[in-house]
Design a protein around this nucleic acid. Structure first.
Length: 576
RNA sequence: CGGGGUGUAGCGCAGCAUGGUAGCGCGCCUGCUUUGGGUGCAGGAGGUCCCCGGUUCGAAUCCGGGCACCCCGACCA
């Protein structure tokens, strides 16, 4: 490709709306442009890299025995009603009607459609295992899209779905996909980690996220340096051994103290001169419309997912959504403004994190504006339905596997694999007949990887002050040739010859044949991040040499003109 | 959905408290110049000042309503 005719609008200045490096550089480098909130155009450079990402994913999926299909982006509401998710999914599902008034949605994921397709065509265990994937545009009406294509509303995803005859076979499929995802992350050159994760709206019994480690990631992770345990913080267990239960003391007296305007744990602990660890945070959550109080230690955070799971799995509560109560609700159910809620005299079920049992002489809100109680004895004063692991894990907590101290990282979730079990096959009646003539639901797994998000994640992990630094496998061009003096016939001819030779050899090569100053050529080459830069200048050509420089290295090397093509091909093939 | 902010040329911004026919830098076009890190000079094109309504002789500027975008939080794969 000749740069003079490439649609590559680069910019000198950062776009006003971008915050993080990948977003700024993808816009500045002419890879993407925003059309609407969370909706983007991919320009030629962006599209070239996306195609390479898709190719890598396809190769690994095919290798793992999956078959590619293409499902529709528009899906009928019937299927979603059948699975129960038409109610369950919430406003992220963009719904609309066709001309006849029929209900439709833009597909945020494809469990319903795929299960519907398979149930009609697969009836025998002999047809299994089966693994089907597609690469397709998804739409999720996110409340807050951010960071360019890192969290977009419309995005490209590869989603695969496995169907097996039983749990054991399904576990094999899961492992196979896990391995394929690991290979994909490696080929993309990521610094990555697979972590245990919550299954969220997709459902299923276990799942792993593939997280790319960066400081700008949206997800908090914990990992054990010793045994390799790693989990999303929303999933990580806090082992019971982390709590030193203290026995009640008879000498404590419950006292009311005035705490005017002290609404946060920090303020209260400063004001009363007690450690945050001695305070008890009372958080009101709503299970659908039913209020419920959750107690955690002042320095801890409630993990809503753990609360949700505990209510469902241990207490058999039935509800659709669990969420934090708003200010208004808190005022209504506690009789006090936010910041003064406390467990004493509260008319609702109360759950407490286990760490509460390590508190003596605790402080809680008095459900009264500007007052707290001190001298709380957990066993005497708290009427708690259950103590359980309800808080978020954090760095320094003991590893649930081996007890070592956990480390923290931030990550970008580029992939997520789910062991679904029979959630969708039962709901939609996707059954097969097994070798004993028994009808049984197929056991499913689903596996998503964010194609457009990968582009942003690679950019986030590979850049410097001058621009992007693509790893060879997904660079939009592998080599860029910079003839510095366009008025020199010798320079132009040398560059053209090399360009032809590399094209011939199947290298993705970009020739900067623009009549621009050298500064502009260098700046653009750095900005768009092409791995191998070959400079053709009068200085070198006079000596029969060209300059090779890899984008991620500081030094450049001189290469004889007649060896240049071979050397370039060598470098490209080594890095691919 | 709560809190905060922004909307003026393709991009980045000034002008707005004190209303008077719209400006800077980059980019773009023409010509010359320069050629190893965004050259220099000269000339030029380009704007319903987000939209609707109001006040006023007169609105980018004041008032009301709406929309869009960004940030923090809530939520979310």
């Amino acid at each position: 490709m000749r740069l003079s005719s490439l649609f590559m609008p680069t910019r000198k200045e950062d776009p006003a709306e971008a915050e993080i490096a990948s977003h700024k550089l993808l816009i500045r480098g002419g890879y993407i442009r925003m059309v609407a909130r969370g909706i983007y155009n991919f320009l030629p450079l962006g599209q070239r890299s996306l195609r390479k990402i898709k190719t890598i994913i396809r190769e690994e999926m095919d290798q793992a025995g999956a078959q590619e299909v293409l499902l529709p982006g528009v899906q009928p509401s019937d299927l979603w009603e059948e699975s129960g998710r038409w109610e369950e999914y919430g406003p992220e599902l963009l719904r609309f009607e066709d001309r006849k008034g029929g209900g439709f949605c833009l597909g945020p994921t494809h469990e319903e459609v795929i299960t519907d397709m398979v149930r009609g065509e697969v009836n025998s265990y002999k047809q299994l295992p089966m693994n089907i994937y597609q690469i397709q545009t998804k739409f999720r009406d996110e409340p807050r899209p951010r960071f360019g294509i890192l969290r977009a509303r419309e995005f490209i995803m590869k989603d695969a779905y496995s169907f097996d005859v039983d749990e054991e076979a399904a576990a094999d499929s899961y492992d196979e996909m896990f391995d394929a995802y690991s290979r994909i992350c490696d080929r993309l050159g990521f610094d990555w980690r697979a972590v245990e994760a919550d299954t969220g709206a997709i459902g299923g019994s276990r799942s792993h996220e593939f997280q790319v480690i960066t400081d700008t990631g949206e997800d908090d992770l914990v990992s054990c340096p010793d045994c390799g345990y790693a989990a999303n913080i929303e999933k990580a267990d806090v082992p019971a051994t982390s709590v030193d239960t203290v026995e009640p003391s008879d000498e404590l007296e419950l006292e009311t103290v005035e705490t005017p305007d002290q609404t946060t744990i920090d303020e209260v602990s400063d004001f009363l001169d007690v450690a945050p660890e001695q305070c008890i945070k009372t958080v009101i959550v709503l299970a659908d419309d039913e209020p419920l109080a959750v107690l955690v230690r002042g320095d801890h955070e409630v993990n809503e997912i753990k609360v949700r799971d505990y209510l469902r799995d241990e207490l058999d509560r039935d509800f659709t959504h669990l969420h934090l109560a708003g200010d208004q609700t808190v005022r209504e159910v506690t009789g006090a403004p936010v910041g003064f809620a406390g467990p004493i005299g509260l008319d609702m079920p109360i759950l407490a994190d286990r760490a509460i049992q390590s508190i003596t002489d605790g402080v809680v809100g008095a459900n009264d504006a500007n007052a707290h109680y001190t001298g709380i004895d957990w066993s005497r004063d708290l009427d708690v339905e259950a103590f359980a692991d309800l808080r978020e894990a954090r760095g320094g907590d003991p590893c649930p596997e081996c007890g070592e101290s956990l480390e923290t990282n931030q990550g970008i979730e580029v992939g997520h694999v789910f062991f679904l079990g029979t959630k969708y096959s039962e709901a939609l009646g996707a059954t097969i007949q097994d070798e004993h003539g028994q009808q049984r639901p197929m056991v499913m797994g689903c596996y998503g990887i964010g194609v457009t998000r990968i582009l942003a994640a690679v950019a986030e992990q590979n850049h410097d002050d001058d621009g992007l630094i693509w790893p060879m496998p997904i660079a939009p061009f592998e080599v860029t040739i910079l003839p510095l003096q366009m008025q020199s016939d010798e320079v132009v001819e040398t560059a053209e010859q090399l360009y032809d030779d590399l094209q011939e050899a199947g290298v993705d090569v970009l020739l900067d044949d623009r009549d621009e100053g050298v500064g502009a050529k260098f700046k653009d080459a750095d900005l768009i991040g092409i791995p191998l830069r070959i400079v053709v200048g009068t200085r070198g050509v006079d000596n029969g040499e060209l300059e090779f420089k890899l984008r991620w290295e500081d030094e450049q090397t001189d290469v004889a003109i007649d060896e240049a093509a071979d050397r370039a091909i060598e470098v490209v093939e080594r890095e691919r």
